[in-house]
Structures are given as C-alpha cells and as structure tokens.
Design a protein around this nucleic acid. Structure first.
Lengths: 139, 139
DNA sequence: AGTGTAAATGAGAAGAGTTTTCATTTATAT
DNA sequence: ATATAAATGAAAACTCTTCTCATTTACACT
C-alpha cells in the first residue's frame, strides 16, 4: 500500500495520508477509531489534526482502501481492506474484535433479501459476546 | 401493555411513561426514534420533554419492554418487544424497515461463536438494500 | 528549477444525537 | 395527610463527527 494507491484514488500524495496509511498497516490492532489513529500519530511525533484524520479515513473508505465498522452505540472503527469480506465478533468486555466469514449466512442473506424484494447493497452482522480470555478472568 | 408492566420493572407509573407506551403501541410505524416519539406526543397535545423521552425509552429497554436498533450512521430507533427475536432489512432509499427471522442464520451464529470460544450475548444483523417500491420509483 | 492553481490541511466552530445536572414536581408507602 | 425517594423538564454538557475558512502544499506546466 503506497503512493500509487492514493494516486489511483485521485488523491494527492500528502504526508498526512501516507502517515495514516502507515499507521493502519503497521499497528498491531487491526481495528482503529479515528481517535486511535490520531493518537498513534501524535505518539510517533507526527503533527496532524484530528479533522484531517477523519477526512482522510473517509476518503480512504470512499476509495475502497479501508472499511468502516459502525459499532453499536460507540464510535466508528476502521480496518484496512484486504479484499475479503468478513463479519465481526465483538467482545463486550475487552472490546476485542475477531473476524469470520460464513458462506451459509452470506447465502441466506441473499435469499432473504430476494424474498422481501430487496436489492441488497450490503449488510452488517455483529455477534456480541464474551471472549475466551474474558470468560477465564471472570471465572 | 399497561401500568402493571411498569410496576414489574420497578418503575413508577407516571403520565410520561404511560404516554410513551401508548404511542409505541398505537403508532402505525413500528420503529420510532426518540425524536419521533417526542414529536408524536407533542402533536397529541401532550407536554413532555425530549430528555424524558430518551430516559423513558432507555428504561424501557432495560426493562425489556422495547429494543433499541442502532442503525448505521444514524440515530437509534426503538420498537416494542413482542417476544420474538428478529433481524432487520433496511431500505437505504426510503428508510423503511422490515423484519425477518431465519433459523439457519441463528444457528450458524451460535456455531461460529462457539468455534471462536465466545459466549454469545446477542447479535445484530442488518441487511441494507433498496426495497421493491424504491426500485420501481428509480426505474 | 520556478510558478499557478486546485486540492489539502489544521484549528476551531458547528452539528447531531444523546446524556447529565439540578431545581421542582409527583407517585406511592406509611 | 405526609414524608421521601423517584421522576420530570429545561438547559447545559458531552461525544463523535463534519464543516468552515484562512493558510499551506502537491503537482502540472513552463
């Protein structure tokens, strides 16, 4: 992921955009909020405005470079797009996010949309629960 | 749905709460935002504060009388709980909301949660698309 | 390399939706 | 009736996000 991707998206290659991309690629967390990205950049000693982070992430979303998850009640988090669609499992205790793909569910959704006469554009499926680690902690 | 339900939930039986319940039961729209409820009450000539509507809906949610849908990007909408779980189809053009239940999907979710070691507490599945009517309008 | 121009930026203001605060009112147990 | 804990309304506060606008920057074209 580099300058070429930005140019293809019709975006000028600027330092803020490269830095946001860099954070998204290098961070251990695959899912970051705009605030997370902003703070990570500040910690790296980069100067950037929060508004710019929001703008850039929104543009990246438009360009198909990242996707935005709108998590219940909370703020949006972003993840780099790697080509494959997937849904999410969220731990309500530690906020860990895991990903999964299930072709059975994908197919059933298409069938349901068709039955209801909907032309499906997208879907969002979140399974909320308590992850293995948090179950242990809770005893 | 009446005073008894409120008492059972440990809530005092007050006019605002009864009025909110009444709106939720009598309205043609099954899915209403806090603002919708507020405006409907004002139109009925009831005096109520928006903060009260939010508070009451949140309490009703806690009491299991209503459930809250957190729709992508937008505001929350509430629906009376009628015992049956269901998921939602949303028209991105006219905001119509339809409901569906699919046991295959329900079961797959349980399996996936188990595979990932999650103790599932709940899930949210929204299928976004364009409804039949809006497809016609768009040609 | 220098320059014009449209695009991008940062800071702060603004906006939407929701929650909180607090003084006043109300429901309900006694 | 009365005490008291809970509920209310209005406004302020809050969170997340977008917008505004003056300044800066990238890049196409000399």
């Amino acid at each position: 992921m580099e300058s070429q991707d930005l140019r293809k998206a019709g975006l000028k290659v600027t330092l803020p955009r490269l830095k946001v991309l860099e954070i998204l690629e290098q961070t251990a967390q695959r899912h970051m909020s705009a605030e997370d990205v902003y703070k990570a950049l500040l910690e790296m000693g980069e100067e950037i405005g929060l508004a710019t982070v929001y703008r850039v992430l929104t543009q990246f979303e438009g360009a198909g470079l990242v996707s935005r998850l709108s998590i219940e009640g909370g703020h949006a988090v972003f993840e780099l797009v790697d080509g494959s669609h997937h849904d999410h499992l969220l731990c309500v205790s530690c906020n860990r996010i895991e990903e999964f793909v299930d072709e059975v569910i994908e197919e059933r959704q298409r069938v349901i949309a068709a039955e209801k006469g909907f032309e499906m554009t997208e879907h969002s499926l979140y399974i909320y629960g308590i992850c293995k680690e948090c179950q242990k902690k809770a005893g």
